[in-house]
């Protein structure tokens, strides 16, 4: 039987609570009283959700297309566009963004990620890419570095000024 994504997510949540319960047992009674109440309730509730998700099974067919005169139609159509592949791509982009920031820091990371994302993911023209990259960099520079004088993360390479 193939599991739905919802069931997998619910199982992960359940495992999180079970892990929490295991860790609670190592603390003193006063320290574990409150977390233990939470994880026990969490285990019960997430088990209920897992059961409900498994019983629901896989969706039989896609939802009916909304009527065009329905005021919510546009919203419903937007919601249907995400696919597992597009989700994976977007999550990878997020991971890439985090990696860029962690390695190169904000100042260089913004200059790397923004043009790559806009041209490879968004297929934007180079003028738009240049304007947006410069705009975001300058916004961050003037707001945080010039006016607020807060140092931003320079990455593991230490590229900060």
């Amino acid at each position: 039987m193939k599991l739905r994504g919802g069931a997998v997510f619910a199982v992960l949540v359940l495992l999180l609570f079970v892990g929490g319960l295991y860790m609670c047992t190592e603390w003193s009674v006063k320290a574990r009283l409150f977390p233990m109440l939470i994880v026990i309730a969490g285990i019960g509730l997430s088990a209920l959700v897992v059961r409900a998700e498994i019983r629901r099974g896989r969706p039989a067919e896609k939802e009916e297309k909304p009527k065009q005169d329905d005021p919510m139609a546009a919203l419903k159509l937007e919601k249907q566009e995400a696919t597992p592949r597009s989700e994976l791509i977007m999550i990878s982009w997020m991971g890439a963004f985090l990696g860029t920031i962690l390695i190169f820091g904000y100042w260089v990371g913004i200059l790397i990620f923004t043009p790559f994302f806009m041209s490879l993911f968004g297929h934007e023209n180079w003028k738009m890419v240049a304007i947006f990259t410069a705009g975001i960099w300058l916004l961050i520079y003037f707001v945080f570095s010039v006016s607020m004088r807060v140092p931003l993360f320079g990455g593991f390479l230490g590229l900060a000024w």
Partner: peptide, 10 residues
């Protein structure tokens, strides 16, 4: 989205 995502992420 391609214009909105980079500034929000940053």
């Amino acid at each position: 989205g391609s214009l909105l995502i980079p500034p929000i992420l940053v």
